[in-house]
């Protein structure tokens, strides 16, 4: 039976559409105002592209995202595999760990990290001063819940007991089993977690700004202090990056059952 779209559904979808689209369109128009005397121009984007700090901070944030993804996967793939294969009783502890980052949000985590590594114990300067060490350590924690859940769902979907036994009875070593049997089977889950992590790290401001690191989001904030049109342009660029990450997530999720878009947190 085909029914016509109901009046109230149209109304709500329209209201939602307006609320969500107006700020984006307005930001775009705002960013085009940078030209002299009320003509529209792309000069804000030109300024941004020719700003070396833009590229430098963007590169730093991308690097941090890739490092976070790499460390998360190296830590969590074997853990999730082992939990599913041998140690199901450890599962509650790991699940507790994946909930904890919500109870200890970034604003509190940064208080704790600064206090612990720069007070309780005196961590070496290279750890405190390099974003690649300090920030990545924190970002891996933020990424835990998303990467773990993605991997957990991936491992649930395949029969790892049979796969592992089959591989080993054919004489494969642990490394071969992991690299050539398990990893290819959870590639989609790992990629899904990776795209979410990318979105989180590219937008993370709280920890970066409070521990005084100059990443892409803190750069946007700094630009806003003197050049509002450029800041609007950068906000749209940031929106585009989030879109790209989510489309990536949608794309890898295709064909592996439901895509599970999860909310992350750059707020």
């Amino acid at each position: 039976m085909r029914t016509r779209i109901s009046f109230s559904a149209v109304t709500w979808l329209l209201i939602g559409g307006v609320y969500f689209l107006v700020p984006l369109v307005a930001t775009m128009l705002f960013s085009l105002q940078s030209g002299s005397n009320s003509s529209y121009s792309l000069s804000a984007y030109g300024t941004v592209i020719h700003d070396r700090t833009f590229w430098k901070t963007l590169q730093l944030s991308v690097e941090l995202a890739l490092e976070t993804i790499a460390i998360s996967l190296v830590l969590l793939v074997p853990t999730a595999y082992w939990v599913h294969l041998k140690l199901p009783r450890v599962r509650p502890y790991i699940e507790f760990m994946t909930i904890l980052p919500f109870v200890v949000p970034p604003i509190i985590l940064v208080v704790g990290l600064l206090k612990f590594y720069n007070g309780t114990i005196h961590a070496p300067l290279w750890f405190l001063e390099k974003p690649h060490y300090f920030l990545t350590s924190a970002y891996v924690i933020l990424a835990f819940p998303y990467v773990y859940r993605s991997l957990d769902a991936g491992f649930r979907a395949i029969d790892i007991h049979t796969l592992t036994e089959a591989s080993q009875s054919l004489g494969a070593s642990w490394r071969t089993t992991m690299g050539r049997v398990i990893l290819p089977n959870i590639r989609t889950a790992a990629l899904g977690g990776a795209f979410l992590t990318l979105a989180i790290v590219m937008g993370e401001f709280t920890i970066a700004s409070l521990s005084a690191f100059f990443t892409f989001p803190t750069y946007i904030q700094q630009v806003n202090a003197e050049k509002v049109y450029e800041a609007a342009a950068l906000s749209l660029v940031s929106f585009g990056i989030t879109w790209a990450a989510m489309l990536g997530l949608l794309f890898v999720g295709r064909g592996s059952g439901r895509n599970r878009t999860q909310p992350a947190g750059g707020r």
């Binding site: 946007i220 800041a231 609007a232 950068l234 906000s235 879109w243 989510m246 947190g265 750059g266």
Partner: peptide, 26 residues
Amino acid sequence: SGVAANFAGIPLAFAFIATLGFTGIV
């Protein structure tokens, strides 16, 4: 929704300032 739920923080604040701030478009 996946995008908007993740699009928060600095760029979101600036998007609304560009829309409904003192000199915002709207």
